[in-house]
Amino acid sequence: MLIVNSKSLGAPVLTMTDFQQHKRDNDEWLSPPVYTHHQGYKICLSVHANGDATAKGTHVSVYVCLMRGEFDDSLKWPFRGVISVRLLDQINGNDNKTYTLPYDDKTSNECCARVTKGEITWGRGITYFNALTKLEPKYLRNDTLLFQIHKVELK
């Protein structure tokens, strides 16, 4: 089980390989799931390499999705807090791209409610996460992007 807020391990790196194939196929890549904390919420990233909706063909789109987890019965719903997603600079690590997503009373219930049907919610995220023209050489190396669910603050 990968845990985001483990002080000894830091945030796990979520590795998206075969980026160009995902881009050509216009498909969605789901990261391995991680837990927000010990016995916490189960989440994953949904990445659209060729963009989603109005960003198709111009940007990478990234969403955080809640998943059905083994500790859901003991958690408070709907999910409330802040999640930060980071695209890692693979050259020198000095220019990571970080976006912070609030989950509050303005957030659609579809992306912060407990998963009762299926295994995953609609994602909450950034349609224009990063321009495709600005991925190389810093972020896209060896046909791979590296992400982290960098920080989770629960409210």
Rank of each mutant, 00 (worst) to 15 (best):
K151N: 08
A49C: 10
N92A: 12
G93D: 14
L88P: 08
T54R: 10
I126W: 00
Q20I: 05
L146Y: 10
V47K: 00
H22M: 02
G57V: 13
G40W: 11
K56G: 09
G93P: 13
N94I: 11
W29S: 03
V152A: 04
G51I: 00
I91Q: 14
R114V: 04
P137L: 09
E119A: 02
L75K: 11
P102Q: 15
E153W: 01
G123D: 10
L9T: 13
T58Y: 13
Q20P: 01
D25I: 09
I91N: 13
V85K: 03
D27N: 12
K155T: 05
Y128W: 14
L140D: 04
E70N: 07
N130T: 14
D105G: 10
T116A: 01
A11V: 08
G10L: 07
M1D: 05
H22E: 01
K7T: 10
H38F: 12
L9D: 12
C112M: 09
Q21P: 05
V4F: 07
A53Y: 12
C112R: 10
S46G: 05
T98Q: 07
V4I: 15
W29P: 04
Y139G: 04
G40A: 12
I149W: 03
N50L: 04
V82L: 10
M16N: 03
A11H: 06
H59I: 12
V85P: 02
K76V: 06
A55S: 15
S31F: 11
C44N: 04
A113R: 06
T36E: 04
D89C: 00
Y99D: 10
G118Q: 03
D143Q: 11
Q148C: 02
K7F: 06
V152Y: 04
L75F: 11
V115L: 01
N50W: 03
K117A: 08
E136D: 07
S8F: 13
L146C: 15
Q20R: 14
H37M: 09
V4T: 12
H150Y: 05
M1N: 05
V85D: 01
A113W: 02
E28Q: 09
T107C: 10
K23M: 05
H38C: 09
P32A: 08
L75V: 11
L2N: 03
N50S: 09
Q21L: 13
D27L: 08
W77A: 02
R141D: 08
I3M: 03
V60Q: 07
K151I: 03
Y139P: 06
N92K: 08
I83R: 09
G125P: 03
H38Q: 14
N130L: 08
R80F: 08
F71L: 06
D89V: 01
Y103E: 01
T144P: 14
E136I: 07
D52Q: 12
G93Q: 13
T36N: 05
D95Y: 13
G40H: 13
L45G: 02
T121A: 04
E70V: 06
R24H: 14
V82K: 09
F129A: 00
S61T: 00
H59L: 12
Y128V: 13
Q148V: 00
Q90I: 09
P78A: 06
S84W: 05
Q90P: 11
I126E: 01
T133W: 10
K56Q: 15
G93L: 12
K56R: 15
S84V: 08
